[in-house]
């Protein structure tokens, strides 16, 4: 039991399959095609700065919409009877198990030209091109990641001790005050973990934008996918930037999360 040796196979595995691949990315990001040290990949990566900005923007908006939808849902769920709560958790979990490409493809079918929604709208006399804009990409992201926002917020809310709320009532708080002073502050850790679970994958995902947004709305993941097959140096530089950006974001989130837990 006291043996550290048991971890040796995994430590070797980790070096070979986690650390060395990362080191390779870093190495490629700082070399040019001839294999010499160079900042060229980063200069090339700079051409995609608008894609970076768009990815972060789309991820932020998606994240915000997820919070707006998830928070009331989680709140309502946490106030239900236990059996109903379990049912809701299951209803929200099931779509998460469907492959993400199928879920996005479902929206392609729904929104495509002459698809069900388009046909319905044109009967009403509205001719809108539903596909190929940033809004559709956000819709896809929200659909994809909404459960990842609902579940952590719900988990935190369902753990709130009912006696706290009763105590607040006894001390004369009305329901708005109870929400502001008791429920909301206690639910912040859930929101924080929801944000990390939604923001990180939506900022770095690929294909969602290709499927729903067309070529004008591609995101940074799509750029990495496209570029990596031809120019691995620039691809590595972009990956490295994405990785560091996400890391900084996670550290910040962690910091906020801890702050809240202490105060």
């Amino acid at each position: 039991m006291k043996s550290k040796k048991l971890s040796i196979p995994y430590l070797i595995w980790m070096v070979v399959f986690t650390l060395i691949p990362l080191a390779t990315i870093i190495f490629y990001a700082f070399t040019n095609k001839q294999g010499n040290f160079s900042f060229e990949p980063f200069q090339n990566a700079f051409f995609y700065s608008d894609v970076f900005v768009r990815s972060i923007w789309i991820a932020l908006v998606s994240c915000l919409i997820c919070i707006i939808l998830a928070y009331p849902m989680a709140y309502i769920m946490s106030r239900c009877k236990e059996r109903t709560q379990n049912l809701f958790v299951m209803l929200i979990t099931i779509p998460m198990w469907m492959n993400f490409l199928l879920r996005i493809y479902a929206w392609v079918i729904l929104l495509q030209n002459n698809g069900p929604i388009d046909t319905a709208l044109s009967i009403l006399g509205i001719n809108a091109n539903l596909m190929g804009n940033a809004g559709t990409v956000v819709l896809g992201m929200v659909y994809e990641f909404l459960p990842f926002m609902i579940l952590p917020i719900y988990t935190v809310m369902s753990k709130i001790d009912n006696r706290l709320i009763e105590a607040a009532q006894d001390l004369g708080s009305n329901s708005v005050q109870i929400f502001k002073k008791v429920v909301f502050p206690l639910s912040i850790p859930g929101i924080i973990s929801g944000i990390t679970m939604v923001f990180v994958p939506s900022a770095s995902t690929f294909l969602v934008a290709q499927y729903l947004g067309g070529t004008d709305n591609i995101m940074i993941g799509d750029v990495i996918d496209k570029i990596f097959w031809t120019d691995q140096n620039t691809g590595s530089a972009i990956s490295l930037i994405l990785m560091v950006a996400i890391l900084i974001f996670l550290v910040l989130m962690n910091f906020f999360g801890d702050e809240e837990a202490i105060s």
């Binding site: 986690t18 390779t24 993941g221 996918d225």
Partner: peptide
């Protein structure tokens, strides 16, 4: 060790994917 072990969980999937591809091609 624990932080290093969490890298594949924390890292964007696509970065993990391309890092494997790069190493396996080499």
């Amino acid at each position: 060790i624990q932080n290093a072990s969490n890298i594949p969980i924390v890292n964007p999937e696509i970065v993990t994917g391309v890092s494997f591809m790069l190493m396996f091609t080499l």
